[in-house]
């Protein structure tokens, strides 16, 4: 089970969190076509590699968090409060181990 290092609470089991989706999807109500809107609703990039995503620490501090996780190894490289700048991150090609 994934361990997520909450910046407020420390390392906690992922069962305390709710996965809140890939980061960077734009919710553009005004100009999205129906097709674009449904891509926003249902489609994810889901690449093999580093992804930025959001987690909600529902059974802890109840704060939304941003993180970067490797979908192959499940390594979580960093976790920060939602809306704060990401730590200067290594390139997508690099694996940390």
């Amino acid at each position: 089970m994934l361990l997520i290092d909450c910046p407020y609470c420390g390392p906690r089991n992922s069962t305390e969190f709710r996965h809140a989706g890939e980061a960077g999807k734009s919710r553009d109500l005004a100009s999205a076509t129906p097709a674009q809107w449904r891509r926003y609703l249902y489609e994810y990039d889901n690449p093999l590699g580093w992804v930025r995503e959001s987690w909600f620490h529902s059974a802890g501090c109840r704060r939304y968090l941003s993180s970067e996780r490797h979908t192959g190894t499940n390594e979580v490289r960093w976790v920060v409060p939602f809306g704060t700048a990401a730590p200067s991150s290594t390139t997508d090609e690099e694996t940390s181990r």
Partner: peptide, 17 residues
């Protein structure tokens, strides 16, 4: 009750901060 609370926090914390 729990879902709605999470849902409201989502809008407040990630969309309309």
């Amino acid at each position: 009750a729990g879902n709605v609370w999470d849902w409201l926090e989502m809008w407040l914390q990630t969309v309309h901060r």
